[in-house]
Design a protein around this nucleic acid. Sequence first.
DNA 1: GGGGATTAATTCACTATTCAACTTTTAACA
DNA 2: TGTTAAAAGTTGAATAGTGAATTAATCCCC
Lengths: 158, 158
Amino acid sequence: MTTDSDTPWLTDQEQRAWRTHLDVSRLLMHQLERDLQPFGLTNNDYEILVNLSEAEDHRLRMSDLAASTLQSKSRLSHQITRMENAGLVRRESCESDRRGLYAVLTEEGWDTMRRVAPHHVASVRKHFIDLFSPDDLQALRASLTPVAEHLRVQRGTI
Amino acid sequence: MTTDSDTPWLTDQEQRAWRTHLDVSRLLMHQLERDLQPFGLTNNDYEILVNLSEAEDHRLRMSDLAASTLQSKSRLSHQITRMENAGLVRRESCESDRRGLYAVLTEEGWDTMRRVAPHHVASVRKHFIDLFSPDDLQALRASLTPVAEHLRVQRGTI
DNA sequence: GGGGATTAATTCACTATTCAACTTTTAACA
DNA sequence: TGTTAAAAGTTGAATAGTGAATTAATCCCC
């Protein structure tokens, strides 16, 4: 950040857009978390399950999993430990790089995923996707994509 | 949530919109947090300061502050304790309702707010607002507003 | 005006996250 | 080759967040 003190304040429109975005982010995460609770999962748990489910052999290197879930290695490590204790994943060592570990979906993890996913999708639809017209959704994606890219670049250049 | 197992899966378009939204939310919060770090504030701290700054007499009832920042009372209580220790706010008892407390901005809190706000605005512009065309921003707000309203209703009916 | 429900806020015990320090293995390169 | 630097991952202590239980004041209404 340059410490520009001549940055213009947000206009009313901008202010409202910004706050609405903030509110939606927060309220949505809350709601999804609540909808997952009956299944004994958190949003974080679920995201790990999704990533592993979509990965080849249901396994990913810890680093890759951390990167794709945007978490720190430390946080992921703790997270995987918890999920390991819950029987959803296990760690397996990596032959090609003896520093490395895979997080692997267990049978139970995979079953859980298949059981919970429909409910989660319903939740995402009900509280987000289905509240937009197809055009609005398309516009949303289009205008958000460059923002995501910008932020990814920023993130890289720590 | 109804446990509809016949909810259609997300289309490719929907999937992408959804994941982009998720990524932007998370990356953005991260980036803002990072930009606030040099000033010794977290996003939460900053949001409390904003709310108090905008309130009459720089004071708000704990409950109102919790509601407007979408936090639980418990969390807010801890948060205010930390900010009190940091000298940014203080608690004051409420005459009209002896159960109640006000969180009040201290001089130092107000100074901090005035000092940090321009940098925060610059950060919000750089990483969010200025990445949209005015029309896109307007469209974003328009399509997000009903979502926020929907989620607020859900939240109320706990 | 007195008893039961509600509301404001905090506290306690527990879980989650962060940040820095650490171990082990691999890569670089002189 | 040896030696240093970088990367993968974990650990541990400190901080933050959650949810249920608790305290104290107010509301209600008969």
